[in-house]
């Protein structure tokens, strides 16, 4: 019997990750993920751990390959949308994406930007990335869309003379700056230590 909870985290992956792990500590294990609804089934408290990663820059093929690889390791994976599946004209341009992920034109290649990974709790911290360089790269992936959004809104604000758009552009810079600080910190560590 599953229990449903309604949450919207948007692009705040760490908040989503912390919430899922709090639910796991309460004895609830993710069964299904929808646009806003998270369905859980009961489990022993602390049985599982969660990690959340942004994979919107990967192509559909690459997302599937990565998901299959994680499942081969014994993890469970859930893909979900970062933004409630709202799309204009069902075509998305992602200038920040890797090759194969720049144009998303079908339902199979968008709406899967967030990857939730579940593992059995073995007492060890759950980190998908070991080295400082990999962690810095992961922060860079999170930073890119916010930078593009801030730039786009900034240009629009200047073009139409809209302070509201200017305000939104500045707001979009906040997460970009946060991720930049984390990226710079991990890059500095990567200069002298591999992990």
């Amino acid at each position: 019997m599953s229990r449903g909870y309604y949450r919207y985290f948007g692009p705040f992956l760490k908040a989503q990750e912390r919430w899922l792990n709090r639910m796991a500590d309460r004895g609830l294990r993710l069964a299904e993920v929808g646009k806003l609804r998270y369905a859980f089934t009961p489990c022993p408290p602390g049985q599982v751990r969660y990690c959340v990663e942004f994979v919107g820059q990967k192509s559909r093929e690459e997302q599937d390959r990565y998901g299959c690889f994680l499942e081969e390791l014994g993890y469970r994976v859930f893909f979900r949308s970062v933004n409630l599946d709202f799309y204009l004209g069902k075509i998305r341009l992602r200038p920040w994406a890797d090759r194969g992920g720049r144009w998303a034109v079908s339902g199979g290649s968008y709406g899967r930007e967030i990857l939730i990974v579940e593992k059995e709790n073995d007492g060890a911290p759950f980190q998908l990335h070991t080295t400082w360089a990999d962690r810095a790269a992961a922060w860079g992936v999170l930073r890119r869309p916010w930078l593009f959004l801030a730039a786009f809104l900034g240009i629009m604000a200047l073009a139409v003379g809209s302070p509201a758009l200017g305000g939104l552009a500045l707001a979009a810079l906040i997460p970009a700056v946060y991720y930049q600080i984390r990226l710079a910190r991990d890059r500095r560590r990567a200069q002298t230590e591999e992990w």
């Binding site: 994680l70 390791l73 993890y75 060890a124 980190q127 998908l128 990335h129 070991t130 990999d134 992961a138």
Partner: peptide, 11 residues
């Protein structure tokens, strides 16, 4: 000493 994260291993 070296514990590989799944993402690092995949890469």
């Amino acid at each position: 000493r070296l514990v590989l994260g799944a993402g690092t291993l995949y890469g």
